[in-house]
Amino acid sequence: MTTPPVTDAAPDARARGRLQRWFGTRDPRSAARLAVWVMLPAAAVQAGFALLVDQGLVADVGSWLTVAVLLAASAALARVDPQQLDARGVLALIPLGGAVILSTLNWVTSDTSAAAQVFAVLPTLWAASQLRAPGAWLVAGLSGISNAVLVLHLEPLERAIPDAAFVAATLSMATALLVHAGHRQERLVAELREQATVDALTGLVTRHVLDAAMAGAVGGGSGHGTALVLVDVDHFKTINDQRGHPVGDDALRHLAEVLRRAVRDGDAIVSRLGGDELAVLLSSCPVDVAERRAHDLVAAVRANPLPLADGGFLPMTVSVGVAQSPTHARDPRELYSTADRALYEAKRGGRDRAVAATTTPTGPLSAA
């Protein structure tokens, strides 16, 4: 029995990544919908020209072929997953094809009217609003060049040069404005996503990120299990009342940094759940290791008091509860509630300590 050769998919993945960066759309589904909404009216307009305007046999045939191509492309976009088309750069072919078809029709009909040239702007506008910058500029360049060739061939030179320059300037300005607007929108979306995943005060990830990571780790049956460590600042209200809320904020930032230094980045997620409660998710962590690391976190906070603006130091302590799956819980909800009960045991026991859960899982194994 022969073993099939192993192929390296990395070059293909890199090639697809470059294709996406250069000729991909910002939102494939939105781009596909907008393309359909542009092509269907364009097909109707072209059919109207073929029916109502005496264009000659060649122009009529070209018009009806254009209508057929636009309708077929619209039907294909409605049936095929836009994500797959975008991954192969197919969506970028829509404005390129549109520019070529419009230029060909104008050439066949010898139409250099303002209406024909303005209609040729549509592929460029679609590309500038939907494609990445390189693809958008490619379409704008092709449209500008094809229009210049057309008018230089069909018009007197003294008219052709101003017309070609005007259309090229219009295409360039529209592309620049829309590409800039697209970049700005992407930056705003990225900032909003970051705000949703990163706590602004501490720089730790939010509860949403922790929950997603815990759902993926708990119940998977791999590694040594997953541990959740809940951390609560002792007497945090007293810090706010006596020192002021700015010092309280400093305390949370300081605690976040202590926890980050105390855990290994590769196997831990440190999160702020809200208020003065933080959490550490430890993947591939046996129960005895989880308990030891919970005690280490308590010791690390105790050994690192908060530096104050007057040069002094504010001692800080934390109460910690730790639970591990599958030893103490079968699903993320049970893991959190079990760790939370252990945390309150630590607070009732005098604070500045870590308490491990002692309960066993009660529900069926969840494939989270």
Rank of each mutant, 00 (worst) to 15 (best):
A174L: 13
Y344C: 05
I94N: 04
R351Q: 12
V6I: 11
V69T: 12
T206L: 02
A294W: 01
V90R: 03
A128N: 03
L365N: 05
V218D: 00
T109D: 13
G182W: 09
L273M: 11
L150Q: 06
K347A: 06
A10P: 02
E186N: 08
R21W: 12
M214V: 04
P41V: 02
D310F: 15
R184H: 15
A368Y: 02
E291N: 10
A164M: 07
D352E: 10
V287D: 11
W37G: 04
L178V: 11
A59K: 02
G321K: 00
T360E: 04
L204P: 09
R14E: 13
M214E: 07
T109N: 06
L157P: 04
A68S: 09
A140P: 07
A168R: 01
Q117K: 06
V90I: 12
D111F: 06
L142C: 09
L204K: 14
Q242V: 12
A367R: 12
V6K: 06
R193V: 15
S319C: 08
G182Y: 11
F166A: 14
D12E: 09
S337V: 09
Q130A: 06
D234S: 08
D276K: 13
Q242F: 14
T202R: 11
Q55M: 13
D8G: 10
G89W: 10
V100K: 03
V289E: 15
L85T: 00
V45D: 08
A299V: 01
P134V: 05
N147G: 11
P123Q: 01
W22T: 11
C285M: 12
E291A: 15
E334V: 12
E186T: 13
T359I: 02
A120V: 05
V270K: 10
T360R: 15
